[in-house]
Amino acid sequence: MLAYTLRRIGSAIPTLLFIITIAFFMMRLAPGGPFDRERQLPPEIEANILRAYNLDKPVYEQYFDYLINIMHGDFGPSYKYLDFTVTDLITTGFPVSLRLGMSAILLAIFVGVFAGTIAALKQNSVFDYMVMGTAMTGIAIPNFVMAPLLALIFGVYLSWLPVAGWGGGAIAYQVMPIITLALPQIAYVARLTRGSMVETMNSNFIRTARAKGLNERIVVIRHALKGGLLPVISYLGPATAEIITGSVVIEAIFDIPGIGRYFVNGALNRDYPVVMGVVIFFALLIITLNLVVDLIYGFLDPRVKVE
């Protein structure tokens, strides 16, 4: 398993290099630059600034300089948040984003698995149709619609929750962002769980468990859930990716000081190092989590040998 892990880490390097290259040149292709303002700067000042950040060099030189820098762990300064390096921004923003993301994933797993399992056990009942109907809606409504909608209802009309902000991490400020992030994932997890539990409950080994006279709770919890949840485990990799991309939008809408907000502001301001830093960080996160998920899978299903 150690060899497998190392091999997976090794194979991540070309992936990462590919992502860095694409992101780097796409940023440069976007019109405008980090120091373009409505009011034209005097040409000599602009030239000074560009020289200070090495932006006066040809793009390919900047690219190789950047690669060498990040290999030394230097992700550069932010062009917008002066006095802050990209590493500073990520280390201050990540704990906030992590808290949101983890809460959303956990909420999605618990609610999704629970709803999906009940729907599977009560197949074609009113509850089943309700869960599946709600799930379809959850998947269909994009988060940038859901977020303002929730803010409007619970923040403005009902005044139950703060409309936006972080409030130093108070629970009330986290409720809506977490729910908005989790909703589509709850929906996916519920649908996945239902489908796979319906299949598992009809399998031969469940018939055996019943023939042994085990009570239905043991049949479901001990015999069905482990196999029934495998698709959910595999989905956790993509789910994390979705939560991360989702959090970029959510943090911007709810004005939360996580990495997502830095990413959006960075993109708008052509703050090249910030955007690159966040892209690399997210890519690493997703690659790592996918590996973790595969290792968990091998642990849950004894027939799968991780090697």
Binding site: S203, N204, F205, T208, K212, G213, P302
Partner: peptide, 25 residues
Amino acid sequence: QLNTLRGVEFSMIFQDPMTSLNPYL
């Protein structure tokens, strides 16, 4: 009520032993 009899008073084995045992336990 059946669960006090199944596997106790009478038991059943099935056609396909490959799928009749739980692969995860």
